[in-house]
């Protein structure tokens, strides 16, 4: 298809003899938001890390814009510029100010002009309500604020796709909302995203497509999140969703 951004073909991942991911195939189109859910240890975070080559893979391939990504170091760095990633633990650079956190990679990796990058970074920080904190250091911010900065840091590279790896899992409950709101607004403005999350209400609101992963494989895939979350087809997905309900 023409507007395909990312394609994963028969991805197979093993670690020390254990199969982590088996035969995962997935195509992400421009502007599409795909949410991956599943029990802990099902391999969903590993899936994102494999896409970004933070983990090596034992089989299958990953294509960006229809072109297979050669896993040589030079190609990998180029590929990663086009894939933004946000981690569970924010992982801002503690020795840099908020603004420097955002501008570092565009300046050093993309060699863009300092003024232009700073201006864009400030606009993006403004969008997530943190422009007034641009001179602060990460340790002065709350978890939710840090995570919003981490999203901005990824966005400033103009990635074709964003990978969000349980970005609210380390946050206090009252901060989850402020972060997910940013993601929802990104989804509305057409960002392409592959999201791993445990926030089911959020998943339902934001997803164009839901993948349910269990034991390293795709168990259920649905292009109708409303229907999936109300009544999943497979027993395993039903059992999983039930764990979020209380009598």
């Amino acid at each position: 298809m023409e507007n395909e951004v990312l394609r994963i073909e028969h991805l197979h991942k093993e670690f020390e003899g254990n199969v982590i991911l088996k035969d995962i195939s997935l195509t992400v189109h421009r502007g599409e938001v795909i949410v991956v859910i599943g029990p802990s240890g099902c391999g969903k975070s590993t899936l994102l890390r494999c896409v970004n080559a933070l983990e090596d893979i034992q089989g299958g391939q990953i294509l960006l814009d229809g072109v297979p990504v050669d896993r040589s170091s030079k190609e990998i760095s180029r590929m990663r510029q086009r894939i933004g990633m946000v981690f569970q633990s924010y992982d801002l650079f503690p020795h840099k100010t908020i603004l420097q956190n955002v501008t570092l990679a565009p300046e050093k990796v993309q060699k863009r002009r300092k003024e232009e990058v700073s201006q864009e970074a400030m606009e993006l920080l403004e969008r997530v309500g943190l422009a007034d904190r641009s001179g602060d250091y990460p340790r002065q911010l709350s978890g939710g604020q840090k995570q919003r900065v981490a999203i901005v840091r990824a966005l400033c590279m103009h990635p074709d796709i964003l990978l969000l790896d349980e970005i609210t899992a380390a946050l206090d409950p009252e901060m989850v909302h402020e972060v997910l709101e940013v993601v929802v607004s990104l989804a509305r403005t057409g960002s392409t995203m592959l999201i791993v999350t445990h926030e089911m209400a959020f998943a339902r609101a934001v997803a164009d497509r839901v993948l349910f992963l269990d034991e390293g494989g795709i168990v259920e895939e649905s292009t109708n999140p409303g229907a999936f979350f109300t009544k999943p087809q497979t027993e395993r997905a039903q059992a999983f969703l039930k764990t979020f309900d209380y009598e």
């Binding site: 992982d91 650079f93 570092l104």
Partner: peptide
Amino acid sequence: IQEESALSLGMTPLQAFRH
């Protein structure tokens, strides 16, 4: 994860080390 964070922004291992 600091290194992974830097790498995921497209930095080469040397850039991640340096910056």
